[in-house]
Design a protein around this nucleic acid. Structure first.
Lengths: 154, 154
DNA sequence: GCTTGAGCTAAAGTTAGCTTTAGGAATTAT
DNA sequence: ATAATTCCTAAAGCTAACTTTAGCTCAAGC
């Protein structure tokens, strides 16, 4: 039996296009916090459809689930988020996105310089400056390129 | 004993800033193909410094090792790559990078539209069109958002 | 009232991109 | 000549973001 404002995990999956397993995973990651009914089954709110949609959009933009959890933390806890609430966190979001685009563009421009000189691994090469774009995607430490990594004769 | 044009894995690591283990891993991925000396130790060419530098730069741009391997495949096999060879593949690269930036920018603009209307999960929302940016980063299938995922009343 | 479909948990598997560990063997330095 | 490095391989471990599997319980339909 589903009350009007409560939906099952299957329904939520249908409405968002997410896999049921993904939604359960998101719960372990603190992205949704459904209640349970008498039989122990998850009961989500309709507003969780929007919440998970936001998660999916944010992922498209390349944000990690950790980061998304932080952002979602800024929504009001005491009431169902309004359109205005969503607008506000989307705006913060946009700022980060702008920065990402800018970093990628800077990097591209540096590449242009390097195409011009054909160096691509000389010590003065602008690309060796490690101050750009979050270089981290997978796990484990990444060693950034430092100056003098390569000498002209190589 | 190292011949003038041959360097050990440790030296290559020092010169590129990569970890020795990373270089070995890159070998398993077909990104470098060192020879071996009498004792079975890897002997790289000095030009591999440049090659691995290219790999590192490409990663900064968000390319996967698979993709990088493909790109590197376009270098001449018969001789040590010249600056011109590197310039050429960098240019192909630049084109893809431009596309990435463009896709991200399109997505950002769509977000702008959504901030304006505050919808973020309504069925007409532009963000639901799955035709943008490679949505795939981690492993396993990703379910893209389709139209009608969310109804206005949610 | 019983059969199915949906849900539940816990644990293991997957991919990318590496690192760490273990136990030897080859080099280099003194 | 010997000690200290460096290198080698193979296998296991790690993170992110999930999926798959196994074995059971709930809930819904007829």
């Amino acid at each position: 039996m589903q009350r009007r404002n409560e939906i099952s995990i299957g329904t939520l999956a249908d409405r968002t296009g997410l896999a049921v397993s993904a939604i359960r995973y998101y719960e372990t990651q603190g992205l949704v916090a459904p209640e349970r009914n008498a039989g122990g089954q998850r009961r989500f709110l309709r507003s969780d459809i929007r919440r998970l949609s936001f998660v999916m959009i944010a992922q498209k933009f390349g944000f990690t689930l950790d980061r998304i959890r932080e952002v979602l933390g800024r929504l009001p806890q005491s009431r169902t988020p309004t359109a205005k609430d969503w607008t506000e966190i989307s705006q913060d979001f946009r700022a980060e996105l702008d920065e990402q685009i800018a970093a990628l563009t800077r990097l591209r421009d540096k590449l242009d310089g390097c195409i011009g000189c054909g160096c691509l691994s000389l010590e003065r090469c602008a690309l060796y400056n490690p101050d750009d774009v979050a270089a981290d995607k997978g796990a484990g430490p990444r060693y950034l390129m430092g100056d003098e990594a390569v000498r002209p004769e190589d």
